[in-house]
Amino acid sequence: MYIFEKNYKNMHKGTLSKKAEILIHIVYWFLMAYFTFIKNPIRARLYVPDLFFITYLIVFILTFYFHYFAVMKFVFKSFQWKRFFAGVLVSYLFFTALRWLIEQVITHILFQRINYTNTAFLNYMFDNLQYSSMPIILSSLLWFVIYFIRLLEYNQIILEENKSTEIKFLKAQINPHFIFNTLNNIYSMVYFQSDKSLTAIEKLSQIMRFTTYESQKEKIKLSDEIDYIKAYIELEQLRHQETAFVDLKTETENEFEEIPPYILSPLIENALKHGKTSTENPITIDLKVKDKKLIFKVLNDIGTQKKDKLGGIGLENLKKRLEIYYPQKHQIKFTNQNNQFTAELEIDLK
């Protein structure tokens, strides 16, 4: 029963509202009245509630809500079986004492009538054991229904919060990884006194603006991701002092289509980091978006430099984010064949 303790103490305020809970209670009492009277209109016409039916109804409702608001709250704050049985006993004693007060004392004073002529203690307590069971059981059942509605909503909130936290963590992994690589590139250009180092710094500044502002958004325009990719490629071209070792083609029906930031760039970063760069066999990048389907393909010759394990930080990160953003709506495939590495990504944007 640990789940009851944990979730009762941490129940989120954003779950089932008080108004909704009151509405459930109204529906509950309507159904009770329906099955008691309305379902059998003949019985309802013939039956005239007497004094002790009314008093029992009063005791029933008071016990119902005493058990609902006081006892159940006490029991499941820190669930233990002894607390549960103690709570049931308290509700039973509450029902019995209240019924005695109303039907044996108050009605005698007001109407000179009492319900029980045999007021032997054991007889009275045993008889009310049966009558008290109904409000206690029904109150417990309604409390459990509302509790589990709140529990389901609370668990959904926790899942959303965990999802948001994981996305933020994955984004935090991306930025340092990219900055580390880019600063190394610029360091090399400055070290060799390249006249393009200032241009590289300007490009880095442009990319950092994207990293600072756009990457914090849940989704961005596809055109912004493409601009980021182009700036990244230009930095690499400045470092290699070549301009034709990347062949980028884009064909999109709607440049305002929205995607999560950094959902395409890890495949390009991987190709530029581990691929063999040359103008004769350039890295080819092909992006198509048609009929709400994104198809992205990156192909590169495998370089001789030391490579990370397939996927590395960037691609493993990408896989996790795709699972979060597009569960069962994406496919990602890596192929290593004929000394060429191919990364293919398909996303259903519907």
Rank of each mutant, 00 (worst) to 15 (best):
K230G: 04
N338R: 02
A343R: 04
E255S: 12
R209P: 02
I54D: 00
L322C: 06
K333G: 01
E258M: 10
T165N: 09
I347Q: 06
Y325D: 11
T243C: 01
V145Y: 12
Y191W: 00
K320G: 02
P261T: 04
G303L: 14
Q237E: 15
E269D: 12
E234N: 11
T335Y: 07
W29E: 00
P260A: 06
T96G: 06
V90D: 06
I226K: 03
I285Y: 14
L31R: 07
K293Y: 13
F4E: 08
E346T: 14
L299I: 10
N185K: 07
S223L: 14
D301S: 08
I220D: 05
D247S: 15
E258Q: 09
K307Y: 01
F76N: 01
Y65G: 02
V27W: 00
Q241P: 14
I157H: 13
D50H: 13
V75D: 06
T119R: 14
V75W: 06
N128F: 03
T243W: 00
F121K: 07
S164T: 13
I58Y: 12
P266R: 03
L238P: 00
F60P: 03
E5A: 08
H177A: 08
F37L: 11
L238S: 00
D227W: 00
N7P: 05
T211Y: 03
S205F: 02
F210Y: 13
N338K: 06
T63G: 04
Y116L: 12
F85D: 11
I226M: 07
I268G: 01
L151S: 13
N300P: 13
Q237K: 15
V48T: 10
F296C: 15
K13F: 13
S140C: 05
V27K: 00
L170M: 10
R239L: 14
K168N: 11
P41Q: 01
F121S: 02
G275L: 05
